[in-house]
Design a protein around this nucleic acid. Structure first.
Lengths: 217, 217
DNA sequence: ACAGCCCCTGAACGGTCGTTCATTTGCCGG
DNA sequence: CCGGCAAATGAACGACCGTTCAGGGGCTGT
């Protein structure tokens, strides 16, 4: 409702107005994020996004080449940060693969509880991307999976993990996929309103994972 | 390419032509199924679906009231059958909750490996449905979850399961959700081309589930 | 043989989409 | 104070959407 003049107001920008995402490009990103998460990329129109941040349709194209580029921008930054924080968590967890796995799960699950919106967008909306643009997202996802596979492999080699077999072989990739599916999709049903805190969720999922891979007590 | 006359051909319909899904309504369902799975409900047009089964746009409305009703028809039948086969599997597994859980996982996972398309549609496309139409789908999903919760509760009561705690309480609903997420999303990455058979997948997932809930050997 | 009916056709409708663009706005350095 | 420029406007464009409907077979029962 409040008309939004281009807004320069003062040399000292009021602190309250800080939260209004001053660079319009950030406002667009934020608005698109929320709308994509709530309703899905194909049904959210450029007009929707721009109205949500007090601009008109045409202004989008001063900042992004297309609606598609906007989505890619959003997903890529989210995915990149996920890759970064998980690798960092594992690196800071010492040598024990059990601690590494627990640290990974904790960061991953908490992130998917708290940033439900981002997780949802990144996981559900990739398919709308140009084939060319989706490649680097898939690469990042494979990289994250390989971190898990690496932890599992170390655990098996050191005799600390005793994962279930397929026939007479272990398929660490399949196990990693199964676990990641489980962790990723907390974002689909966890609500901060419930009785369980994010920290409790993280612990529950870590427990289940350690049990599933047969971690020694 | 091949023009498709209304096709009645003979009293004895050739066996080869059997596979062409004679009742057009079935052809529409099948075509819609595949297209929704591959590209997603909002971007698949009525014209796409009808062209895929050799008809024109308008013919859809001889069989369905709207595109929305078509999606609901597809999802509801898939979901209903899933509910049926899982309940049946549990009922035929005897009294031991470990056997019940294993039987449930087996049916559920194999179904999601083999009917990847259906599973994908049912799980990804509900959000496009009218709010009114989605209610019974959600009910069915809750029913399936409650079957799992029931099995877990029986296992805990009988001392055969020792699931991870949240604080000092068990939250069987959260555990059931976590497991179901894991089982559901095999449809997102399992490919029949790989080295693992559906049966092996089922066994792997059952193993992981039994471990996760702390089933006694 | 003919009526009746089911079903398909394909043009048409009203809307909305992503995107473009000429025009206007308001800030900035000098 | 002014010229330049980044950025917003909002009308316009062409395409395509879901849906409707008048018209036209070919089948079936009598």
């Amino acid at each position: 409702m409040t008309k939004r003049k281009p807004a320069r107001m003062d040399v000292v920008t009021p602190v309250v107005a800080e939260r209004e995402l001053r660079p319009p490009i950030e406002a667009i990103r934020a608005a698109a994020f929320q709308q994509f998460a709530e309703r899905g990329y194909p049904v959210v129109t450029v007009r929707d996004i721009m109205k949500a941040c007090g601009l008109t349709q045409g202004a989008l194209y001063n900042h992004f080449k297309s609606k598609d580029e906007l989505l890619h921008d959003i997903i890529a930054s989210t995915q990149g940060e996920l890759e970064r924080v998980t690798q960092q968590a594992v690196a800071g967890a010492g040598d024990d693969p059990r601690a590494k796995l627990a640290a990974f799960v904790r960061v991953y699950v908490i992130r998917h509880c708290g940033l439900r919106v981002e997780a949802l967008v990144a996981n559900r909306e990739i398919s709308w991307l140009d084939p060319g643009r989706v490649a680097d997202i898939r690469r990042s996802r494979r990289a994250i999976r390989d971190v898990v596979v690496g932890i599992l492999a170390q655990g098996v080699d050191s005799g600390l993990f005793d994962p279930p077999l397929i026939g007479d072989r272990v398929d660490l990739k399949a196990i990693a996929m199964a676990l990641l599916d489980q962790w990723t999709h907390v974002s689909m049903w966890y609500g901060p309103g419930g009785k369980i805190t994010e920290e409790e969720m993280a612990r529950l999922y870590a427990d289940m994972a350690l049990r599933a891979v047969g971690a020694r007590a």
